[in-house]
């Protein structure tokens, strides 16, 4: 079966990358741990992470409460696990939407060129120059009461597609100049086929990089919005954890474990996805040049 061998070759590439690139190895491992905590471990929480006063308040870390408890009476460890899961979900939704919009627009822009290209790039430049974060603040303030996890992911993607679009476009433009595309065209292939067979394999690699970067951007944006009180404050996300910890002055009251947990986790998420992103681009640069 062709699809099986395709999967096999993807698997092989993955294993090769994992073995050959330290940045990728470290990044992948950290991400794997985060995913396990967020999706496999979090359902086993003994207490609710969304109700108030499920456990005693303000307890420091101990064998019973690994990362202590918050002033809202939640077990910080289990709240953290649930938050990792939800934050990653939001980020994956954003990445799925935004990087594919970016891919589509980048391809259209790069291949069609001309006036359409100019228009699309002007729109994406506008998005890049306008403070996107403020745009999101305005939008979310309006629909604050209807917001859900998938909706939040979708809304963040409004401002996240221009970077992938620019990236894919410049990739297509540089590929178009290369001789193999010319030879394919000269040999009588239709433009769409040239695209499919010659450009896509290269663009897909960068698409993956864009996907990773968008995850990074989305997690950062969600936590920023949450600090503004514009996330789903009744649910568990890393940003919401930060919001409540800040709101209860956790730092000034000496409840450092409450605020440190999401901060450290966020930093780990940023670094691990960034490592994967640069590891991948290094690899792509090496094979494509």
């Amino acid at each position: 079966m062709p699809s099986l061998s395709f999967l096999k070759s993807i698997g092989k590439t993955f294993i090769f990358l994992y073995k050959s690139n330290f940045k990728l190895r470290l990044g992948f491992t950290l991400i794997l741990i985060l995913f396990i905590l967020g999706f496999a471990v979090s359902p086993f929480s003994p207490t609710s992470t969304r109700t108030w006063y499920a456990v005693p308040r303000d307890r420091p870390p101990s064998p019973e409460y690994l990362l202590g408890t918050s002033s809202m009476g939640r077990d910080v460890f289990w709240e953290l696990c649930a938050s990792i899961g939800k934050s990653l979900t939001i980020a994956l939704i954003t990445a799925l939407i935004a990087s594919h919009i970016g891919l589509f627009i980048g391809l259209v822009s790069g291949i069609r060129g001309g006036l359409l290209d100019r228009f699309l790039m002007f729109v994406s430049d506008t998005f890049i120059i306008v403070p996107g974060f403020l745009l999101l603040i305005v939008v979310i303030s309006i629909i604050k009461s209807w917001i859900t996890i998938p909706l939040l992911g979708a809304i963040i993607s409004i401002v996240s597609w221009p970077w992938p679009a620019r990236q894919v476009r410049s990739m297509v433009l540089s590929l178009r100049e290369r001789t193999f595309v010319y030879t394919a065209k000269l040999s009588g292939m239709r433009t769409s086929k040239v695209l499919l067979f010659e450009i896509m394999p290269y663009v897909l690699g960068w698409h993956l990089v864009n996907f990773t970067n968008t995850i990074l951007f989305s997690i950062g944006t969600e936590s920023g919005l949450a600090i503004f009180g514009l996330s789903i404050l009744g649910d568990n996300t890393l940003g919401v954890m930060l919001y409540w910890a800040l709101n209860y002055y956790a730092l000034f009251r000496g409840i450092w474990w409450w605020i440190t947990a999401p901060i450290v986790t966020l930093v780990l998420i940023f670094i691990s996805f960034y490592l994967v992103s640069i590891g991948l681009s290094e690899h792509l640069h090496r094979i494509i040049g």
Binding site: G220, V267, I271, Y274
Partner: peptide, 10 residues
């Protein structure tokens, strides 16, 4: 490399 991906507010 460790600082670059961390947003300002974090």
């Amino acid at each position: 490399i460790s600082l670059y991906p961390v947003p300002y507010y974090i």
